[in-house]
């Protein structure tokens, strides 16, 4: 893959100089910190809000905080993935920078892989930051939690984000418009999340990875290897289709 190193370096520089990496990291960190804090102090917050309201809230548990974190981070994360990746290819093709770069000794596969690698790394870094903050605060505020299960959950979240990035990059190579690419990627990602509830079929949806990870936190034995295999297959298929699309693209 010719030119890959230079392209990856450029992608990282772009993430830093355009503040994308900072924004992703800050948003993830805020949600990572806020989830255990909110759960711990929710009863006090409600008490402060109304004098005569009596709501009986059971004390929050560490598992509950980590589950809440996973639910929130996946929703916010998918939105951020779509927003950052939807113009990654279409924007460069439309503006002409893709033609400028691809007239050099650079393969189209390198051009795509550099984007996937840089975006994935940024989201992994942000997720590590958020998960460390969330786990630390959870332990401090709500007590011990199953660390290895939480690590496994984060590993599954990373895989899900890579699915989201690959799907968005594919649509970004197909459409000229960022909005069309982003909109369609969101439809697909939300669609498969809805389908998770369909018996049998749901076991193979990438969103099943998140349910699996959350289940591990509560000590459930159920696994979703089917969802994992399909997720890996979706990443490979999306990259292949993106490459096919780019290979035939007139620049």
């Amino acid at each position: 893959m010719s030119g890959l190193g230079a392209l990856i370096k450029k992608e990282f520089k772009e993430q830093i100089k355009t503040y994308r990496l900072l924004i992703i990291a800050v948003v993830f960190l805020v949600f990572g910190l806020a989830t255990p804090l909110m759960l711990k102090y929710l009863p006090q917050i409600i008490k402060l809000a109304g004098e005569n309201i009596v709501i009986d809230i059971p004390p929050a548990s560490a598992v509950q905080a980590l589950t809440e974190y996973a639910d929130t981070i996946i929703q916010v994360g998918v939105l951020l993935v779509v927003l950052t990746a939807m113009g990654a290819i279409s924007g460069e093709v439309y503006k002409g920078t893709a033609a400028m770069v691809l007239s050099k000794p650079v393969s189209r596969a390198s051009f795509i892989f550099a984007k996937l690698f840089a975006l994935s790394t940024s989201f992994i870094a942000a997720l590590i930051l958020a998960s460390a903050a969330c786990y630390g605060y959870t332990v401090i505020l709500l007590g011990e939690a199953n660390f290895s299960a939480f690590m496994a959950l984060n590993g599954l979240l990373i895989l899900f984000f890579m699915v989201a990035i690959s799907v968005t990059l594919l649509f970004s190579s197909v459409f000229r418009s960022h909005l069309a690419a982003g909109g369609l990627a969101l439809v697909v990602l939300i669609g498969q999340a809805v389908m998770v509830n369909i018996p049998r079929l749901g076991d193979y949806m990438p969103a099943g990875l998140v349910s699996w990870g959350i289940g591990l936190l509560s000590g459930e034995e159920a696994s979703a290897w089917g969802a994992l295999r399909i997720s890996l297959a979706v990443i490979v298929a999306c990259l292949y289709l993106t490459w096919l699309r780019m290979r035939n693209k007139e620049l």
Binding site: E14, A99, M100
Partner: peptide, 10 residues
Amino acid sequence: PEVPTFYNWM
């Protein structure tokens, strides 16, 4: 190219 385009952040 006819209209050279660059990464404006560079």
